[in-house]
Nucleic acid binder design. Structure first.
Ligand SMILES: [Mn+2]
Ligand SMILES: [Mn+2]
Ligand SMILES: [Zn+2]
Ligand SMILES: [Zn+2]
Lengths: 137, 137
DNA sequence: TTAATAAATGCACTTCCGTTGCATGACTAC
DNA sequence: GTAGTCATGCAACGGAAGTGCATTTATTAA
């Protein structure tokens, strides 16, 4: 049994053909993908199946949503060992204004924020827009 | 001439009846509003007019968009003196998981973020989700 | 004041994305 | 093998953003 297959099983996701393909696709770049991106990558596959595939991945902590402010939800692989399904990994996300790609900066956690009295933080999202390492220099 | 009227004119926006109403509506709470909220508040008015009204306000630095991760754009008044049309005011936004309202925390600026080499920040958005001061108590 | 011009409004229609219902096909457990 | 569960495919829906164009209202120039 190959590694992807056993990985999916370890996450309690049945390794169907489609799921293996989508998972592999997600691993091929560290760029967050929209459902549309995935649809384009698997033009023959059904939209709904892909939709439910990423939804399943999300529920099982295999991918996490990335809201980069473009208005379209993106998805990116969770880090190995991040318990995304239980407790969110609060790293920041970077959206390049040039190549328009969004990446997880998993090493960069969101700093501690001081809130006014009475406010209780439960979750947070920080998106930086600018020029990415490939497009600068 | 009343204050709202002259304020709009100072922003190079013609103070039409609709614009005065929408602007006044926005001032009545410090909560960010979706276009749908505004539509509900002025049920008799035309959707498109309201849409273009807030768009104009946005272009002229009267309101700014708030992307709080709900998938629907919200709008909130800019601070007096914030040159939102030129340079974005990088305060943080708070979305209450209880009352589902989003507020600008204009006093709380987004802290300095260290980015990896090669990344250049141009803009940023920080949204905290949790319990607001009205719902925590 | 009136005619010409520009701006704002209203209506219809479109597109995009996310989501759901339901029927069919595949796999699993017994 | 059968029953039950899970995955897939197709069709349709709904919300929200956005556009084209005709009409009304306001501004300006003659
Ligand atoms: Mn991420
Ligand atoms: Mn704000
Ligand atoms: Zn780039
Ligand atoms: Zn609240």
């Amino acid at each position: 049994m190959n590694t992807i297959e056993s990985f999916l099983e370890s996450k309690k996701v049945r390794p169907t053909a489609m799921r293996l393909l989508v998972y592999k696709y997600m691993t091929q770049s560290n760029v967050a993908k929209t459902l549309g991106d995935i649809e384009n990558a698997f033009a023959k596959a059904d939209r709904t199946t892909l939709y439910r595939t990423v939804k399943t991945f999300e529920e099982k902590g295999i991918v996490h949503q990335v809201d980069d402010g473009t208005g379209t939800i993106k998805y990116a692989l969770c880090e190995a060992g991040c318990n995304c399904d239980i407790d969110r990994d609060l790293h920041l996300h970077f959206r390049c204004n040039n190549c328009r790609e969004t990446t997880c900066l998993t090493e960069h956690k969101i700093p501690q924020i001081n809130l006014p009295d009475g406010y209780i933080a439960e979750d947070m999202n920080l998106v930086i827009k600018g020029i990415c390492e490939h497009c600068s220099g």
